[in-house]
C-alpha cells in the first residue's frame, strides 16, 4: 500500500496562489476557506531583508494530533496514509482544530455566497454549495484530503497539477525510488514544527 505524501520545493515556489485557487475550485470550499494556503513572511531589516512564501495544507501526519483528540473517531488515516474526515460521524466539536499544530482544519457554520445577500445563487454557486455539502459540509471539520476524487480519476491533487512553478511533487513516501522520496533525501527535505512529533508527510525543500 502506498503512503502518500508531498514535497514542496521552496526554491521553485514564488507565492502565486495558484495552489490555493486550484484547491478552492476543485474542492468547492466556501468563502474564507482555503484548504491550501500560501503564508507570506519577511525576515531581516532593510536592505538585508527577504520575503518568503510558504504554501501550507494538511500535512497528513503519521501520528496526527487531530486523530488523537477526535472523540467520535470521525477523523482517521486511510490505509494509504491520507487523513480524512467522515462528515457523517463528525459532531463539529472542533477538538481536532485544537489538536492540529498546523491550523490546517476549517469549519463553517453555514454556507454563504460571495455576493451580497438577496441575490439568487448563480448556477456556479448552486453547484459549489451542493458539492460542498456532499463532500464536506457545514458545522463539521473539513480539510485537504489530497483530492480524493481527482486521485480516483487518476489525477494528482489539484494544487500539484496547477502549480506554474512545478514546485510540488506528490508521491509514495514508502517507495524509496519515488521522486518525492528521492528529492527529500537528496535536497535536504524538512518538515514544519518537527518538535510537535506528529511526523508530517508534507516536506519542504529549502528556498536557497
Amino acid at each position: 500500500m502506498a503512503r502518500y505524501g508531498m514535497v514542496i520545493d521552496l526554491k521553485r515556489c514564488y507565492g502565486c496562489y495558484a495552489c490555493s485557487m486550484a484547491c478552492k475550485v476543485a474542492n468547492h470550499t466556501p468563502p474564507n476557506v482555503f484548504w491550501s494556503r500560501v503564508l507570506k513572511g519577511e525576515s531581516g531589516t532593510f536592505p538585508n531583508v527577504v520575503r518568503q512564501a510558504l504554501p501550507v495544507l494538511c500535512f497528513h501526519c503519521e501520528d496526527p494530533g487531530c486523530v488523537k483528540v477526535c472523540p467520535t473517531k470521525a477523523t482517521y488515516a486511510n490505509d494509504d496514509g491520507v487523513v480524512v474526515i467522515d462528515k457523517e460521524v463528525c459532531v463539529g466539536c472542533k477538538y481536532c482544530m485544537m489538536g492540529c499544530p498546523y491550523g490546517a482544519r476549517y469549519t463553517v457554520p453555514e454556507w454563504k455566497s460571495y455576493f451580497p445577500e438577496g441575490l439568487p445563487l448563480s448556477e456556479l454557486e448552486q453547484f459549489q454549495k451542493e458539492a460542498w455539502e456532499e463532500k464536506s459540509g457545514c458545522g463539521v471539520a473539513t480539510k485537504c484530503d489530497f483530492c480524493t476524487e481527482r486521485r480516483e480519476d487518476g489525477k494528482e491533487p489539484s494544487c500539484v497539477t496547477a502549480c506554474p512553478a512545478d514546485a510540488r511533487i506528490f508521491g509514495d513516501l514508502d517507495n524509496p525510488d519515488s521522486e518525492a522520496s528521492q528529492r527529500i533525501k537528496r535536497d535536504r527535505g524538512f518538515v514544519l514544527k518537527p518538535e510537535q512529533g506528529t511526523k508530517p508527510k508534507v516536506y519542504y525543500l529549502p528556498p536557497r
Binding site: 495558484a18 490555493s20 460571495y114
Partner: peptide, 14 residues
C-alpha cells in the same frame, strides 16, 4: 499549468 486568474475563470462567467 495555469495561473490563479485562469483557475478563477468560472466566476467571471456566472
Amino acid at each position: 499549468k495555469i495561473c490563479v486568474k485562469g483557475l478563477a475563470g468560472p466566476q467571471l462567467l456566472y
